[in-house]
């Protein structure tokens, strides 16, 4: 009996050692209010708070890593970090390469911002961040697309006249309109399928843990509170 207890403790201990492995959370750090670098130089925003809470609920130890958007998926699949939590919409194309948890914000339409409200989108030049659903959408419409590496540059392109309008997540544009005469257009595009956390396809255990944590936050309403606090999307 004593031996049995000893073995179980040993097993439990090795299991907890494996659990104590640090989970590295990859994000972009340039997409307020989702994720950005605050004055102290730390990653902050909706996803920082969400990620920390999810890690607490899943009893994981997490650290944060910044990575450029362009190479964010290649660096995940080669295991330089373990999750992507960077306002990434769940799309079938991405799902072929990586896995997603359930969405933590609902599918919201994307919005346009321009220097005047009566800009002609079809004949104009539209700015979007490279390898986003918005860039894919503009390209599929056959409109003239200019792509930029960072969200900030897409807005700057509209301000300096290089592009006529920018297509991006509405919550991001909300932080930008009102400055230098930038206005939101009426027209919206229903693209994308909600934002989720990206994980390696070979990592179903971690995915299950985060899935359960997201579900528990949805159930007790704390996810909605967080969404309202950072104004990232509509409520669940």
């Amino acid at each position: 009996m004593k031996k049995l207890i000893l073995t179980t403790t040993a097993l439990a201990m090795t299991a907890s050692f494996a659990m104590a492995d640090t989970v590295r959370m990859g994000t972009e750090g340039a997409y307020a209010p989702w994720n950005f670098v605050n004055d102290a130089g730390e990653i902050d925003g909706f996803e920082r708070e969400l990620g920390d809470e999810l890690c607490k609920r899943a009893e994981l130890e997490c650290t944060w890593v910044k990575n450029e958007w362009d190479s964010i998926i290649p660096n995940l699949v080669s295991s330089n970090y373990d999750t992507i939590i960077a306002g990434m919409s769940i799309t079938p194309e991405r799902d072929e390469v990586i896995d997603f948890t359930q969405a933590y914000t609902p599918a919201d339409p994307s919005a346009y911002a321009a220097m005047s409200a009566d800009v002609n989108l079809e004949g104009g030049v539209i700015a979007a961040q490279a390898t986003t659903i918005q860039a894919g959408f503009v390209a599929a419409q056959g409109w003239t697309l200019v792509e930029f590496a960072t969200p900030e540059e897409t807005v700057a392109a509209v301000k300096n006249g290089e592009a006529d309008a920018v297509l991006a997540d509405k919550s991001f544009l909300d932080t930008m309109v009102g400055q230098d005469g930038l206005v939101m257009l009426e027209r919206m595009e229903a693209i994308g399928g909600g934002v989720g956390m990206g994980l390696r396809e070979s990592d179903p255990e971690l995915r299950a843990k985060f899935d359960a944590a997201i579900q528990s936050m949805k159930d007790d309403g704390s996810l909605n509170t967080l969404i309202a606090k950072w104004e990232v999307s509509t409520q669940w």
Binding site: A32, P33, V37, N38, D44, G45, T150, T175
Partner: peptide, 19 residues
């Protein structure tokens, strides 16, 4: 330089400034 020079709104920074 790119990160610091980017537009900062009062909501996310104590030091809001344009581009």
């Amino acid at each position: 330089a790119r990160e610091l020079g980017a537009t900062k709104t009062a909501k996310f920074s104590d030091y809001p400034h344009g581009n």
